[in-house]
Amino acid sequence: MLQRILDSIIPPKKIPDQDWFALQFEPEKAREVYKIPLPSLPSDDAQVSFTALSGENNMRQAFDFYVHMRSVCQLDKIRRPKVLDFGGGWGRVSRLFLRDTKPQNIYIAETRASVIQLLRDANAPYTAIHNEPPPPIAGLPNDMDLVFAYSVFSHLSEKYFLDWIGYFLEVLRPGGHIVFTSRGHYFIRHLQHLHANEEAAPPNLAEHIRRLKQMMPHPDEILRLYDAGEFQFYPVGGSEELTPSFFGEAFIPLAYLKKHFGDALVDFTEDLPRVDQSVTVLRKR
């Protein structure tokens, strides 16, 4: 009881953005000076396996996404928000919210059992939940302030996308937000480059290009459908529990989002620095 009273009257220490980013590489200092239980970073190999990035480049991408969410969703006005990192991997974005809220208010849901074990091995202070591919998420509160997903809906089928968004709108409090990324023009340009340069690609990348050619239309057709406002899903599959029945490459254009979510759509951008996917923000009325 006393702790709850103190929490309500003593504000958390304010850490400037530049200092908070630097602390990601000094977790001992975060723990000693600010009493924030910041975990150490996983190995470079582990980081690359999730995002093809590591070190400062990896965290800078996550940080730009985090800062964008805090700004658009006005999270600075919410005292110790409850947040869910859906498909959050080892927690490269989740860890950034340790500046804003208590560890027990940060939830990570992951379909892959190996990733849940990775979080536990790292003694990550968040609440990690091993969820099934379709909703719901067992044990998740129904008064969340923010649900976010980086590079998750860029891979899920339309049915799974709509089912998950519908579920998240149920567990959000009124005024809460959903923020997610998906494939857009940046990735289409990447596919066009791969097609145009297949002969010069190293053997491992050439095999990847051949696989994409077999399972996806030509990038020019993907671009046409994207600009026409169509949801596109190509079931190329992934690792472990990520089967082609729901996992692949997904493109979600702005016109589709406007049609399905109307006034709940409060922001959409494909121009966030260092973030190579579109970023969508929905708000629960």
Rank of each mutant, 00 (worst) to 15 (best):
T243K: 15
V179Q: 03
Q214G: 00
S157D: 10
E230P: 01
V281I: 04
N142L: 08
D100V: 01
E32S: 12
S239P: 03
Q3S: 07
K159G: 02
V93D: 05
P103G: 07
P135C: 05
P39G: 04
A122R: 10
P202V: 03
P133C: 02
L146V: 13
G237D: 06
I5T: 10
S71T: 12
P133W: 00
N105C: 07
F97T: 10
H208D: 12
F231L: 05
D163C: 01
Y66M: 10
N142E: 13
Q47D: 02
V281D: 04
I106T: 02
I178W: 09
L119K: 01
L6I: 12
D276C: 02
D263T: 08
P273I: 04
L194N: 09
R60T: 07
Q3R: 14
D267I: 03
K13G: 00
Q74H: 14
A62V: 03
I188W: 11
I137Q: 03
D143F: 01
G166K: 06
T181H: 02
V179G: 08
C73K: 04
A138S: 12
P42G: 02
P174D: 13
G139I: 09
P103V: 06
V266G: 01
E170Y: 00
S278T: 15
V275I: 14
D85Q: 02
P81Y: 08
F231Q: 04
L23E: 08
F65Y: 15
R112E: 15
L254N: 12
T127H: 13
S94H: 11
M144A: 04
L223W: 12
Y186A: 10
A264V: 05
K77T: 11
T51W: 13
P134S: 09
I15S: 03
N105H: 14
T280Q: 04
K35D: 13
Y107E: 12
R183P: 00
K82A: 02
M144I: 10
L23M: 09
F247L: 02
R31V: 00
E198T: 04
K77C: 00
E32L: 11
D85W: 02
Y186R: 12
D85V: 04
S278M: 07
I36Y: 09
L162N: 11
S151A: 14
E170G: 04
P235T: 09
D121A: 04
P37K: 00
N105M: 09
I165V: 15
F233W: 08
A149N: 07
F148L: 04
S151T: 11
K213V: 01
A264Q: 15
E241C: 03
I116R: 05
L282M: 07
T51A: 05
D121N: 12
R4Q: 14
E270W: 06
L53F: 07
P235K: 04
T243H: 09
L162C: 06
L156W: 14
R95T: 11
F261S: 03
L282S: 08
R283W: 06
R120K: 13
S239M: 11
D7S: 13
H193V: 03
